[in-house]
Amino acid sequence: MALVKAGVVVLDCAEPEKLAEFYKELLDAEEIVASANLVEIRGADGTRLAFRRDVNATPPSWPRPENSFQAHLDFLVEDLDAVERKVVGLGGRPLETKGAPGPHEERGYSDPSGHSFTIRLEPSRAPKQG
């Protein structure tokens, strides 16, 4: 039996209730823990995220170098345009990036509290043709 199990990604923010609501809607998630200073959600696929109150939280400034990349989330999607509309409709905003690296098309955003995240096309699982 493993001594340590994978836990949950926790984002610090000034208003955990509002940020949890953003991600609940984005991930079709459910709230599983809530207290005065922490809200935890679980997505339909089992992904767990938590949001912890920190009144002094400073959002990352990525892609600018000052206070840049603290951490970010990657979400796999089937339709970049549809997910972008959902992100923006929920209060997220696109981040300007110049030619995202990597083998898959991806787009960067920040959530309403300024944490960066990426949506990228889920790799095809279809068998190769030919």
Results as ranks from 00 to 15, higher is better:
P94M: 08
L90H: 05
E84S: 15
S124C: 02
D81Q: 10
L121R: 08
H104P: 01
R107Q: 03
G114H: 01
T58G: 06
D81V: 09
T58E: 15
Q70P: 00
D54N: 15
G92P: 00
V88T: 13
G102S: 09
E96V: 13
I119F: 01
H115E: 08
L80K: 01
P127E: 05
A82S: 14
W62F: 15
G99S: 10
P103C: 07
S124I: 04
E84V: 12
V77Q: 04
L95Y: 00
R125K: 14
V88G: 07
R64C: 09
L95K: 00
P59D: 08
S113H: 11
F75N: 02
T118S: 07
N56M: 09
R53D: 02
P112W: 00
R52Y: 11
K86M: 10
P60N: 11
L95T: 04
S61C: 14
K98P: 00
L90M: 08
H115Q: 09
V87M: 02
E84T: 15
V55D: 15
L95C: 08
T58H: 11
R107F: 03
L95H: 01
V83M: 10
D79W: 09
G91I: 04
L76F: 10
S68A: 15
T97F: 04
S116A: 09
F69C: 05
P103V: 12
P60K: 04
R64T: 13
S116V: 03
A71S: 15
H104L: 15
F75G: 01
P60H: 06
E106M: 11
N67P: 02
E122M: 13
R125C: 07
V87Y: 00
S110R: 01
V55G: 08
R53W: 05
T97P: 01
V88M: 06
R64P: 03
